[in-house]
Amino acid sequence: MSDDKIMVLFKNGKRNKAFWELYKLYPRIEKLILSKGGTKADANDVFQESLIILNRNLEKSEFKLTSSFYTYLYSVSRFVWKDNQKQFSKQELHNLKAEEVSILDAVLEEKKYQTAERAFSELGERCQQLLQRFYLNKMSFKAIAEVMQFKTEKVAKNQKYKCLQKAKDIYRNQFKTVQS
């Protein structure tokens, strides 16, 4: 499938189908990671991360894909892997090209979200469900209260606030440890 068609899939929100198409590129990315000393599991993670970054960028209105999906994913994967391995030398960072800088920015930005995600995953299951329902599924507190058997809307809202605060606390702590 051509890049244009995949782009249309993204635009129409058919991300599942689009990811499926992009997975055809996986063997080549895997090769790259294996050649850099990674394992198959590493390759899997790196590719997934690249897809997330791609997806996030595509949602940004100011983002424009200037190369093919493959080239983009390849570069992103390379940076993700390098970043994971903490292999960037100062010299290297200094010599990056403009497009590479934007990719590196995206990779570094995504790291924050990664941390947040990890924080989120440390919440209790009920908290996670609640937050996902509210933020991802855009459910109202009323509906959430019904589904999750909270006594009232208010209880649900209160509970959600507590869960979010907890996630933020964990994130803040984790971020600090990452920073230090």
């Binding site: 991300r15 599942n16 189908k17 689009a18 990811f19 499926w20 992009l22 997975y23 055809k24 996986y26 997934q48 897809l51 997330i52 997806n55 996030r56 924050k112 979200y113 990664q114 941390t115 947040a116 995600e117 990890r118 924080a119 989120f120 995953s121 937050l131 996902q132 933020y135 991802l136 979010l164 996630a167 933020k168 994130y171 803040r172």
Partner: peptide, 26 residues
Amino acid sequence: KEHLIVIKGIERTKTKLEINDAKANF
């Protein structure tokens, strides 16, 4: 900003699900 990050982190779970789905299909 913190709020945004946390929400994006939550969003990642959804994207990951989608990706894993696609992978499984593939």
